[in-house]
Design a protein around this nucleic acid. Structure first.
Lengths: 147, 147
DNA sequence: TCCTTTATTGTACTAATTGTATCATTGTCA
DNA sequence: TGACAATGATACAATTAGTACAATAAAGGA
């Protein structure tokens, strides 16, 4: 059995869809620090059992949260809160998380024998590539909107 | 006990299956000379114990590498890096492994909400930091030699 | 030396756990 | 009553774990 215990209060007569209530409450627990990045959520079946709803309803909520990049669901593995630092964290913490991410990357690259020059060149190239892809998908979305 | 010590970094909620991460990292260590033809890898059980995964997960990774002719697994003997390095192990592959490492880093940073500017600045800073540390330890070694 | 036994190692097959996809059912509201 | 949204049922796919087995090597004794 996996996944953190999750205490949710559903109101079956509120008019709000169950999956919306699940989405909202997970989101608010994340904002309030009850859930933290990296936490594993209950499985769709376990949470469904506890809430006495169909597991597809939980799956739907999880899918919405996944599309919002709030959680990451992985078939056969489980679902996890993503590591995105909440927007309200301090700039200092934010920088630290980028610094540690970067240091992991660089030390791995060095361990693999790449030089400073190779690493910085590859970072430049990759950034360029990613940005051009972002640009392209933004354009595509605009096209879809206009048609 | 057999098999070279193997340093692998697993991320259990990266979305990538464990066996894929094992495959990728062994491949990149080979391409970059950390593993050499003829080296014996840890046994499926030993590596599994160290990584805290089921040994079948390691076996699956080894099977994939075996099918790619990168390693040779022999029942009752162990697992070895193939003596004849596949012809495609070349500068090209080496560059590709850096590219994929870099892309993982960048997409993670973007997912965390950092901008291109922040990422490239942090890479510059971190590289500088690492290089200065390398320099310092080289100097210290030289001092020790001379005394 | 040669045979037997035991330990080590990878393999095969199966089961369990987890999320996904699709369609059916239900309920509400215009 | 027809349309649509919400929920449920069922079958499926991906990942990992459990168990038994086969091949090889190493150890030990006749």
């Amino acid at each position: 059995m996996t996944g953190k215990k999750l205490t949710l209060q559903l109101d079956f007569h509120s008019g709000l869809p169950i999956y919306t209530q699940i989405v909202n409450q997970i989101q608010s627990q994340l904002v309030n620090g009850i859930l933290k990045p990296g936490d594993q959520l209950p499985t769709v079946r376990a949470l469904a059992l506890e809430l006495r709803v169909n597991f597809n309803t939980v799956a739907r909520a999880y899918r919405i949260l996944d599309e919002a990049r709030i959680i990451s669901t992985q078939q056969g593995r489980g679902t996890y809160i993503t590591e995105i630092p909440p927007p309200e964290i301090s700039e200092k913490l934010r920088r630290e998380s980028l610094a540690s991410l970067t240091q992991r990357f660089i030390s791995e690259a060095f361990r693999l024998g790449f030089s400073e020059r190779e690493v910085s060149q590859m970072v430049r190239d990759s950034l360029k590539l990613v940005l051009s892809r972002v640009e392209a998908s933004r354009k595509e979305a605009a096209d879809n909107d206009s048609k």
